[in-house]
Amino acid sequence: MAQTEKIEQGRGFGKKRAKKSTSLGNKNLIPIPKGAKTSKKRVGQGPGSGLGKTSARGSKGQRARASSMKRGFEGGQMPLHKRLPKRGFTNIFKEEFQPVNLLALTKAGLSGEVTPAALKAKNLIKSETDLIKVLGTGEITAAITITADGFSESAKAKIEKAGGKVVIREKKKEEKKKA
């Protein structure tokens, strides 16, 4: 009898366990048992810490030191990042454009002259100074004059068909500092 009581008490999902209820019901919501979440133990040194002179690191050896090993160290064996072959390259001249679809322009209700500042105001782009490319997804009915750094062929054709105008923004060349 005493043994079955212990089993019932130790289960943790019994009748005594608190249940949380939400608008979604109790689906996938198991309350965290008391003592399951504890803060990380702060290890001190010396007799006052309760961990003695070695701070729970044992005595001597590599792992007892403050900076024991570098990340990726495999005990002297050639580490994985050096064993694997190098592949590809990174193009340092890559230009990343912020895409803006014609559908987004129509939804935003832009008309007349559309500048990068207007696109930024409608949250269609993140930055005015970065490169902007207008893409041809969607249709446009209003005649707009849009200024951007690039246009897809379909976007250019659709804008001009609607009576609009395409203006390519001039690139600002950074002057090299003379040393």
Rank of each mutant, 00 (worst) to 15 (best):
M1W: 14
Q3N: 10
E8Y: 12
F13G: 11
G25A: 08
I30W: 10
S39W: 04
V43C: 07
Q45L: 02
P47K: 11
G48Y: 15
L51V: 04
G52L: 13
M69K: 02
E74G: 09
G75F: 03
G75L: 07
M78E: 10
K82L: 14
R83T: 08
G88Q: 15
F89V: 07
I92K: 15
F97W: 04
Q98L: 04
V100S: 04
V100Y: 01
L103E: 13
A104V: 04
L105S: 10
S111Q: 09
A117L: 10
A118L: 13
A118M: 05
L119W: 01
K120C: 00
N123S: 14
S127F: 07
E128W: 07
L131P: 06
L131E: 03
V134C: 08
T137F: 05
T137K: 01
G138K: 06
E139L: 15
A142H: 03
A142C: 07
T145W: 02
G150K: 10
G150L: 10
F151E: 03
S152I: 07
S152M: 02
S154T: 13
K156V: 06
K158Q: 15
K161F: 05
A162G: 07
A162C: 13
E170K: 05
K171I: 08
K173I: 00
K173E: 12
